[in-house]
Structures are given as C-alpha cells and as structure tokens.
C-alpha cells in the first residue's frame, strides 16, 4: 500500500462518518436553498437578473454555505480523540489535511449541484451558455474554497469562537477568489463578457497555495 491508498482510506473514513448521521450535505443544501429563497424575495421576485448579479449571488450563497458548513467536521474528530489515531500512524501528517479537503470538497460539490439547480430554477436565471466553462468554474471554485475553508477551520479549531470565526476569517482571505469566480461565472453565463486570464490565474494561485502550504504547516498548527 502506498500513500495514495492511505489517502483514500482517510477520505473513506470522512465520507463514511458523513453517511452515518453526519448531516453536512443536508444542512449545506437546506441552508443554501433557504438563502436562494431569501435572495429571491429580497430582489422582490425580479423576473430576470442580469448575468453579473446572478453570478455574484450564486457565489455569495456558495461562500456562506461552505463557510458555515466547514466547522461541522471538527466535533467528531475530537469526540473520542479520533484525530490522534492518524497522527500516530506512519504517514506524512499533512496527508490528513488533503484527505479532509478532498472529503469536504466532495460533500460541498454534492450540495452545490442541488443548490445550483434550484438557484437557476427559483431565480429564473437562463441556462449557462458556456456550460463546460461553468462546470469547470464551479468545480475549481468549490475546490479552492473548501481547501481554504478546511485550512482556516483547522486554524480556528482550537478557538472558542470557532463557528463564527471561520466565516470571519474565510471571507477576507478569499475575496480575490470570490471576485475571480464571479467574473468567470459571468463569462460562462454570458460569453460576450470577457474575463481576463488574470482571474484564472487567481483561482490557480489559490489552489497552489492551499495545496502547498498545509504540506509545510499542517503538523505545526495541530501540535499540542
């Protein structure tokens, strides 16, 4: 067995725990749908939204949903001291982070598929013209977002304000990501709008930083 298999074992553990009474996906989805509904009302049931607004609102909903859901992970790891188990195993400890990220991304992705579908239906947003681009943007965006969220949830994991702090830290840190995703989604909804390559680079930069930083720092953050 190599590191990849160990990685999948860790992911499997998170997903299995989620299926057993973790309600990550369900709570994400219901919170997100509720927000879509509220946004629809706040806009006074506008019959059609400009593409720029639609993309902005979509990412606002996704950001809030992910940020709130990120902390749900920790209580289970702490309950019987489970997190120390992988810590004792002969593996690189940062692998634990990557597995958590992957599991969180998977769950956020599942939730956002439902969320996005309802978003388009409820707010009556036209189907994205560049559908391939749209899918790629959503996939990369949620990947970067859940990575940053997992990292910040780890940082805030020891804080007594954990639940509030993760959104408070996540939003300012990922504002460039937020802007980039809005622009790219706008482009996908309305290809006439040109999104500069710089925005793609920003998303890429977030992925690289979230990918590399925990390799150096994860063990440090969690040390007792």
């Amino acid at each position: 067995m190599n590191s990849v298999q160990v990685f999948w074992t860790l992911v499997w553990k998170d997903l299995r725990a989620e299926m057993r009474g973790g309600r990550f996906v369900v709570s994400c989805l219901s919170f997100g749908v509720l927000m879509v509904l509220i946004v629809g009302m706040a806009l006074n049931a506008a019959p059609h939204l400009p593409a720029s607004w639609a993309s902005g609102l979509l990412w606002m909903v996704l950001f809030f949903t992910t940020a709130l859901a990120m902390t749900r992970h920790d209580a289970k790891e702490q309950e019987f001291g489970g997190w120390m188990g992988p810590w004792l195993a002969p593996i690189d400890r940062s692998l634990v982070f990557y597995a958590r990220w992957c599991a969180a991304w998977f769950m956020v992705l599942v939730a956002s598929v439902g969320l996005i579908a309802l978003f388009f239906i409820i707010l009556n947003v036209p189907f994205p013209v560049a559908f391939g681009t749209f899918v790629a943007v959503v996939a990369a965006g949620t990947l970067a977002l859940s990575g940053a969220g997992t990292l910040l949830a780890t940082l805030a994991g020891q804080s007594s304000l954990r639940e509030v702090l993760v959104p408070i830290l996540l939003f300012p840190i990922s504002i460039p990501l937020f802007l980039a995703l809005i622009r790219l989604t706008w482009h996908a909804l309305d290809p006439a709008v040109i999104a500069g390559a710089a925005w793609v680079e920003i998303v890429g930069a977030y992925l690289v930083v979230v990918g590399v930083l925990p390799w150096l720092l994860y063990e440090l953050i969690l040390e007792v």
Partner: peptide
Amino acid sequence: GVLLQQPMLYGDL
C-alpha cells in the same frame, strides 16, 4: 503502539 486515556476511535464508525 499507543493507548491514551482517550480511546482514539471514531464514534460514527
């Protein structure tokens, strides 16, 4: 092989 006062197990599994 380490055993602490906490059992280091996952409650959901």
